[in-house]
Write a protein that binds this DNA or RNA. Structure first.
Lengths: 161, 161
DNA sequence: GTCAGTGCAAACTTTTTGCAACTAC
DNA sequence: GTAGTTGCAAAAAGTTTGCACTGAC
């Protein structure tokens, strides 16, 4: 593990420790193992994929319910964000990621990232009296290259009928 | 019904007719009743709420499966958009709505709208070669006023322990 | 007349819950 | 020791599917 990565893990573990202590919750091994796993995975993952990763890569068994519970806890702690655009939902770490938004294909439901630095500024306009904004998600829906091509072909076929 | 509203319904019915004909799908009564209902409802609605509205307000019985099927069809036709941020997902008409984005409370999951005219411009930058952008959704997560107050009180309570 | 679309119920997937056992504090 | 947390299995919630019937073309 690189020293930069080691530091990343230390930072998020510290945030979790603080959060647990502030909310009078317990520092269980499960919570820290799951946190480590999440900050080792690059990109998006589902509940199931996280459980598989824990079992196969980290050699750490957890129950499905605990993964659910822990992901919810981490979302409260702002350590993880959830993308509900697909079923099952996909999760992603909230810290140590470059600002980006998501391109979602309305056909195949695939989700890809695109780097972004523009939106953040506009959001400062959000009324802070009636709503305390913490973070935002921008989803751009459309067609990925593959599906756009396939759809074009299907349309041509229909025309010929 | 106002003449503006009547026109709105005619426009979306026409779009649906075109879409169905293009895709060799059938113009069933169900599809048009559901379309009318959607463009009468203001704001967001769930599958269930739509079915209730159809039954109680429109006096038109449809099966749950048909509501699911039809909403999926309307999403393909870009007549409806879906917000998956909550379970069950909420739908909203895609046309005849002012540009807006959504404020989602991470505590109570409530979703409110905020008018917006800024984001659209930035999106023109999305690479059109690899992804054909059609529309976008911006979700701002945070705390609604009610939950922010409640959380603040809870924190104070914890401090006293 | 044909076959896409619908209604209904059953099946399936995903998430939550209840309870006994465990363990952080 | 107490009570929060976990694992497991059962239940609940949400969505899809199979099949017989209906109705658009």
């Amino acid at each position: 593990m690189e020293s930069k990565d080691k530091n990343k893990h230390e930072v998020v573990r510290h945030i979790l420790t603080e959060f647990l202590s502030l909310h009078k919750l317990r520092a269980t091994r499960e919570r820290f193992e799951i946190l480590d796993a999440i900050y080792n995975i690059n990109g998006h993952f589902t509940n199931d994929q996280l459980q598989d990763y824990l079992e196969n890569v980290c050699k750490f068994r957890v129950s499905r319910a605990t993964v659910y519970n822990t992901l919810n806890l981490f979302m409260d702690a702002r350590l993880v964000v959830c993308h509900n655009c697909s079923v099952p939902p996909q999760y992603e770490r909230a810290l140590f990621v470059d600002p980006h938004f998501h391109l979602i294909c309305t056909e195949c439901k695939s989700m890809t990232e695109m780097k972004n630095s523009l939106i953040g500024e506009s959001l400062k306009l959000v009324d802070t009296k009636r709503f305390k904004a913490a973070y935002h998600m921008l989803y751009v829906y459309g067609l990925c290259a593959k599906c756009a091509l396939r759809k074009k072909r299907e349309m041509k076929k229909l025309d010929k009928l």
